[in-house]
């Protein structure tokens, strides 16, 4: 369910929640930098990893899903939970004064 009035297309940023089967080892998913990782484990069941984060466009989403495939994490679900406006931040070289969280 998309929680936004903006329409989704190939180029707009959106927040996605992706659940995968398996343990999300921090080292294993180091390339998923920028996403929030959490884990759900019910008693005796296989852990389910949850990734939530903002993806710039569908190319970024496709890249992420490909990475999960390479990491052999079966995908349980992919959900778009919020679509941003089409004219969200540009991707040109940011100025050095931009406040960005360190990696």
């Amino acid at each position: 369910m998309i929680g936004s009035s903006h329409s989704l297309n190939m180029s707009v940023p959106a927040i996605y929640r992706i659940t995968v089967q398996g343990k999300l080892d921090e080292k294993l998913v180091r390339h998923l930098d920028g996403l929030n990782l959490s884990e759900i484990t019910a008693n005796g069941e296989t852990p389910v990893g949850v990734l939530v984060g903002r993806l710039i466009d569908q190319a970024a989403l496709s890249g992420l899903l490909n990475s999960l495939y390479d990491l052999q994490l079966p995908i349980i679900s992919v959900e778009c939970i919020n679509v941003e406006a089409a004219d969200a931040e540009s991707h040109s070289v940011p100025s050095k004064n931009a406040e960005l969280a360190p990696s």
């Binding site: 190939m10 180029s11 707009v12 710039i56 466009d57 569908q58 190319a59 089409a86 991707h91 040109s92 070289v93 940011p94 100025s95 050095k96 931009a98 960005l100 969280a101 360190p102 990696s103």
Partner: peptide, 12 residues
């Protein structure tokens, strides 16, 4: 991106 070391041209 955070370090300002990347320029991007995307679908949009």
């Amino acid at each position: 991106r955070r370090q300002g070391h990347m320029n991007e041209i995307r679908l949009g």
